[in-house]
């Protein structure tokens, strides 16, 4: 229950306080969100599987976001920013889908 409340508090804070993101960091925000989404759905699935571990969650979340941002940065520097970002989105997207499918099986048993 507490994590769900925390999630909504975070979203509300982000929406209403509207903290300004430095222009230099703005390109990394969308892909960081996707990476974070992957970590969160992975954690949710692990929780339902009964193997959740908060140390793993914290580390996977932080490293996912950092690595995603690093890949975008690297792509920008190499001049292939768009393609590398697409690769990251595809991989993370597939993982999110299969994790959500597992979560769905847990909840609806279907």
């Amino acid at each position: 229950m507490i994590p769900v409340i925390g999630l909504f508090v975070g979203i509300a804070a982000g929406l209403f306080l509207d903290p300004s993101v430095p222009v230099a960091l703005q390109p990394y925000l969308p892909i960081a969100v996707v990476a974070a989404l992957d970590a969160v759905f992975g954690a949710l699935r692990a929780y339902l599987d009964g193997i959740f571990d908060d140390k793993v969650f914290v580390i996977s979340f932080v490293s996912n976001v950092v690595i995603a941002a690093l890949i975008v940065y690297l792509g920008d520097q190499l001049g292939v920013g768009g393609q590398l970002s697409t690769g990251v989105i595809v991989v993370l997207g597939i993982r999110i889908f299969s994790n959500v499918a597992a979560i769905r099986r847990h909840i609806f048993h279907a």
């Binding site: 507490i2 994590p3 925390g6 999630l7 909504f8 508090v9 975070g10 979203i11 509300a12 804070a13 982000g14 929406l15 509207d18 903290p19 993101v21 925000l29 969308p30 960081a32 969100v33 974070a36 989404l37 970590a39 969160v40 954690a43 929780y47 009964g50 959740f52 571990d53 908060d54 140390k55 969650f57 914290v58 979340f61 932080v62 976001v65």
Partner: peptide, 24 residues
């Protein structure tokens, strides 16, 4: 099942913040 610890909740809040900022 283990109850999520404080660190995990901080991360969840950070995630919400990220989503909120991106949406904004």
């Amino acid at each position: 099942l283990q109850r999520p610890a404080a660190a995990a909740i901080v991360v969840v809040v950070a995630f919400g913040l990220l989503v909120g900022i991106a949406a904004g």
